[in-house]
Computed example of a mutant assay.
Amino acid sequence: MIDRYIDRLLLDSSPQRPLWNQEMIIGNKKPHWNYIDGCMMTAFLTLYEKSFDKKYLDFVDNFIDYFIEDNGSIKSFDIETYNLDNINEGRALYKLHDYTGKKKYRKAIENLYIQLQLQPRTKEGNFWHKGIYPNQIWLDGLYMAQPFYLEYEKRFNNKKNYIDILNQIKNVVKLMKNKETGLYYHAYDSSRDSSWSNEETGLSQNYWLRAEGWFLMALVDILEIVEDKKEELYSFVSKTLLDLIEALIKYQDISGMWFQVVDKIDEPRNYLETSGSSIISYAILKAVRLGIISKEFKPFGEKAFNGICNKYLFERDGEMNLGGICLVAGLGGKDNRDGSFDYYMSEPVVENEAKGIAPFLLAYLQE
């Protein structure tokens, strides 16, 4: 069933119109370099490494090649937006360069790294989430930038900035974690200037499921890259990962999934959401597979994956579909998103969107 779904995604997608990028399709946007496609490239490369079926590697190579010029410049990429989301798709470049040897992929990695060198920072030392969101740390941004940053440091920079990565994660734990629940608020504004931030703490109001997931996925992917358990980065991140998994398990629904706003389990309008549940399933199963956490956690990851299959994976007109995916959620911006429970309930829920599909496939591949 899932293999049929994967085949459909490959057959019906191109850089000009990827089936999984509902933001592009709904908004009628032109092809552009973005984290949504980046999530799918990570999933397809993992499929290749699991199966050694060259169709997956060829698909990713052709897809990414479309955006990369011979000099390493990236179509539609604008460094001056300082958008951490735009770093994520660059993760595919490392493996593509390994597998294909294309020099332009190595050059593109450098272009993305330049952004991180120039990225504005909060007074605490963390990257701004985007240029349009000054002084703000979003959990999303940890996944978008840190694994790429870490991979570069490991491969090309003799781990020079491991301490910077560690300090940015430490700041998130210090500033954004609720010690009582163990959960993390979606975002933090060090200036307290945004309409959504608490005047005293700088924090947003709620625990958005996918934000918890983005952070959790960043942590487990970082641990896979670091590998060396003697590194301080490894020890701190592994403890942070375990603590968050233990906190999230307390809110896991009987179905195996989690709610869009994690702790509001008794709110009738709240709903079980696919992307965040898939990410948590993936992170738990991967952490078990890598020996980072005990095998006793594996049933929680499996229950989440099976719950998603039971509730949201379905066949229609002979084709497989995955539903229950929050299209997008953020804070501030032109729509002045306030981070309230009502706000998170107001965002569209869609089918066949990469933010749900990619972690769902990654969870599937952890066995």
Results as ranks from 00 to 15, higher is better:
Tyr105Ser: 11
Glu267Thr: 09
Glu200Tyr: 08
Ala187Gly: 13
Ala108Asn: 07
Gln168Trp: 02
Leu216Ala: 05
Ser51Arg: 14
His129Asn: 07
Phe63Pro: 05
Ile222Lys: 02
Gln16Ser: 03
Glu227Gly: 01
Gly90Arg: 01
Leu142Met: 15
Leu112Asn: 00
Lys102Thr: 11
Gly339Gln: 15
Lys179Ser: 13
Val172Ala: 13
Thr122Tyr: 01
Tyr99Ala: 08
Leu362Cys: 04
Tyr105Thr: 06
Val261Cys: 08
Met176Thr: 06
Ile293Ala: 05
Phe314Ile: 07
Gln119Tyr: 02
Gly323Leu: 13
Lys123Phe: 08
Asn310Leu: 11
Gly324Pro: 05
Gly307Arg: 07
Tyr188Ser: 07
Glu151Met: 12
Phe156Gln: 03
Ser190Thr: 07
Arg269His: 15
Tyr312Ile: 12
Leu175Cys: 03
Lys334Gly: 05
Gly131Gln: 11
Lys55Gly: 05
Leu116Gln: 01
Trp33Glu: 06
Glu212Asn: 12
Glu23Ile: 11
Lys29Trp: 05
Leu322Met: 06
Gly125Arg: 06
Ile25Glu: 13
Glu124Trp: 08
Ile25Val: 11
Leu362Thr: 08
Ser235Tyr: 01
Tyr35Gly: 01
Leu362Gly: 06
Met176Leu: 14
Gly101Asn: 08
Ser197Cys: 14
Leu313Gln: 09
Tyr113Ala: 00
Glu319Val: 02
Lys177Ser: 04
Gly333Trp: 08
Gly301Cys: 09
Leu290Val: 03
Lys130Tyr: 01
Met40Cys: 00
Thr181Gln: 06
Leu272Arg: 11
Ser73Arg: 15
Gly213Ser: 03
Ser190Val: 04
Ala187Phe: 07
Lys50Gly: 02
Glu319Tyr: 02
Asn88Cys: 04
His97Arg: 10
Leu203Phe: 12
Arg8Ser: 12
Thr181Tyr: 06
Glu296Asn: 13
Leu233Tyr: 08
Trp208Cys: 13
Asn34Ser: 11
Ile357Cys: 10
Met1Cys: 05
Lys250Ala: 09
Asp193Pro: 05
Thr46Pro: 00
Ile137Phe: 10
Lys174Gly: 01
Tyr5Pro: 11
Tyr207Leu: 13
Arg210Ile: 01
Leu116Ala: 00
Phe215Ala: 12
Gly332His: 14
Tyr271Ser: 04
Tyr66His: 06
Tyr185Arg: 00
Arg91Glu: 12
Tyr271Trp: 07
Ile163Lys: 14
Glu302Phe: 01
Val262Leu: 06
Val328Asn: 02
Ser13Gln: 14
Lys230Tyr: 05
Met24Pro: 03
Trp33Ser: 05
Leu112Cys: 00
Asn71Tyr: 12
Glu180Ser: 15
Met320Pro: 06
Leu84Glu: 00
Ala363Cys: 10
Phe156Pro: 02
Tyr94Asp: 04
Lys123Glu: 12
Tyr152Arg: 00
Ile68Cys: 10
Ile225Glu: 07
Leu84Gln: 00
Glu80Pro: 03
Arg269Val: 06
Gly141Pro: 01
Arg91Cys: 13
